[in-house]
Simulated assay, not measured.
Amino acid sequence: MMELYPEVVMVNDTPRSYYVSIYNYPLIFSIRDLKTSRVGYLIAVQGTITRTTQTRPELELASFKCLECGTIVPHIPQQFKYTQPTICPMERCGNKTSFLVLPEESRFNDWQQIRMQENSSDIPAGSMPRTLSIILRNDLVEVVKPGDKVVVTGTLVVVPDVYSTVKGGVTSVQERGRLDHGDGVIGLHELGVRDLCYRLCVVASHIRKCNEDTVQEGEQRYT
């Protein structure tokens, strides 16, 4: 883009960001059809929006300052968790823990999480509706609202279910403490090895509103 269309990429001497949006994926899944065998693949899934969060800033590329020698460590990618440099690049420093993030030299994205539920036509008789978390970034935020029926195209990923892990861990530790020691244990420090819970999530590339029975040209539902 910079070589072919420099006048489009640069606006007031500042590079403009571009994001790839893929849509009209030929096969549309229901939430119930998503399995771990499809993790890492591009998919399209349909459902009804039940919940949306407010738009928040997400740290994409972070620049850090070493608090030992003052060296700037730029452009550390952040993906689903806060990540510091493993070690200061200054050869004589060797600092591994003391870093300060520099917001003015870091890059942030708009970020929103929405909750999608199965359409009524996809729920088998006697079953509870399944739900799925969708992550929206940049120009996709604030596009839909609860009650909208949508088709989302994006990448299926797995992320740690932190709430379930913490809640279950604290309960088990406290119960064990009351039974074995009488006083109980607060927090997760004494838990040791604990089960990690994960959940499926879609990082959206495109989202469009539709009717429940609407299938565009070239699309078909997964059966």
Rank of each mutant, 00 (worst) to 15 (best):
Y19H: 14
S121K: 10
V143T: 10
T48V: 14
P6Y: 08
G168R: 09
G70P: 09
D13H: 15
E105M: 14
F108G: 01
D183K: 08
F80G: 09
P124D: 02
Q174H: 14
Q174D: 05
W111I: 04
E219Y: 07
S127G: 01
L67I: 10
D183P: 03
V152Q: 00
V101G: 05
R137K: 15
C66F: 11
R208D: 09
L4Y: 14
N12S: 13
S164E: 13
Q46K: 13
N109P: 06
V185D: 04
Y198G: 04
V141A: 01
L156N: 02
E190K: 11
L67K: 15
V166G: 00
K65E: 15
G182N: 14
R16F: 10
V9M: 12
S37M: 05
E175D: 12
D122E: 05
N119F: 01
G47E: 01
P129N: 02
G154F: 03
M10G: 02
F64Q: 02
D183S: 06
V45W: 01
T171H: 12
D180S: 15
I49A: 01
D110I: 06
C69M: 05
L156I: 11
T153K: 03
V173M: 10
R221N: 05
C210G: 04
G177H: 04
V159C: 02
L191A: 15
P146R: 07
R92N: 12
D195F: 08
R178C: 06
I87G: 00
H206Y: 13
A62F: 03
V144G: 00
M90E: 13
P85G: 00
I72R: 03
Q113D: 10
K149N: 13
C201I: 07
Y19M: 10
E91L: 14
L156S: 06
Y82P: 01
R38C: 06
F29E: 04
R176W: 13
R16W: 05
D183H: 15
Y222L: 07
G94A: 05
R208A: 10
V202H: 03
V157G: 00
I43Q: 04
K149M: 06
E105P: 01
R194K: 13
F64A: 03
M90S: 11
L188F: 05
R137H: 11
P77K: 09
F64D: 00
I123M: 00
V202K: 02
M116V: 07
H75A: 09
L191V: 15
F64M: 07
R221M: 12
V157D: 06
V193H: 11
K209L: 11
V39K: 11
L59K: 08
T50G: 06
Q112E: 15
Q174F: 10
E7D: 15
P6S: 10
G154N: 05
E58C: 12
S63F: 04
E118I: 02
E212R: 07
S37K: 13
R178K: 11
K81P: 02
M116A: 02
L4A: 11
S121M: 12
C197D: 09
V150S: 02
V215W: 08
H181W: 14
Q46N: 12
R32A: 14
Y222E: 14
D180Y: 07
Q174G: 03
R38H: 14
V141W: 00
N95W: 09
G168I: 07
